[in-house]
Amino acid sequence: MSLTTDDVNKIAYLARLGINAQDTESYTANLSNMLNLVAEMSSVNTDNVAPMAHPFDTTQRLRPDQITEGNQRDNFQAIAPQVEEGLYLVPKVLD
């Protein structure tokens, strides 16, 4: 399986991941190699095998709907890049 630099740029955009233009070629080669490694999987027939998402086939544990956490907004926002009046600031989304 071989990817093109266009494929990699598209995947990088889906992941919102900046890649320097001069590195695109090497990421393309790396990713193609990884996909070749992964292609080994097709050597085994898995038609009647159920996918295993997790080491244990358990269901999500439920708990009573009670408040267990206090408000820690100030604590959490103390490490944020930019906040104002309790809000996280990002560049303008709507004009």
Binding site: L3, V8, I11, A12, Y13, L14, A15, R16, L17, G18, I19, N20, D23, Y27, N30, L31, M34, L35, V90, P91, V93
Partner: peptide, 26 residues
């Protein structure tokens, strides 16, 4: 906002992490 995400992640992650995010996304 897109530029914020793309550049913050592009600058913050190293090459191995990027490779794995890319393969996983694919």
């Amino acid at each position: 906002l897109n530029d914020l995400y793309i550049r913050s992640r592009g600058e913050g992650f190293g090459p191995e992490v990027k490779r794995r995010i890319l393969v996983g996304t694919y």
